[in-house]
Amino acid sequence: MTRADATDPRLILLDEDDNIVAVARPIKAGENVLIDGAIHALDAEVGLGFKLARRAIAADEPIVKHGARIGIATTAIAAGALVHTHNVRSAYLPSTETLAKAGDPS
């Protein structure tokens, strides 16, 4: 994880491959945040542990946190916007299905 100079100290970039940043300290609605050098105004208050889009994310694009896919965008998400249940769905398949897809390696 790095905290690039071009990103707000209230936000954490967990992995260089991530397309979201995590909120480290609560930020009030209307405040500006700096993400990768770009300024965005927040339209709602966000608390610790919430996520903001690091860049524009297209519908059906994976959401990447900790360098891993944690869901799929259900709609286009603008840079700086809140990324949560209203615009992301789980991509989780129960393991039995994952196993069936992976096939038997032996």
Binding site: V23, G49, F50, K51, H66, G71, H84, V88, S90
Partner: peptide, 12 residues
């Protein structure tokens, strides 16, 4: 608490 999906929770 800001977690969106089961895979995000587990990833933490």
């Amino acid at each position: 608490g800001g977690l969106t999906t089961i895979e995000e929770k587990s990833m933490g």
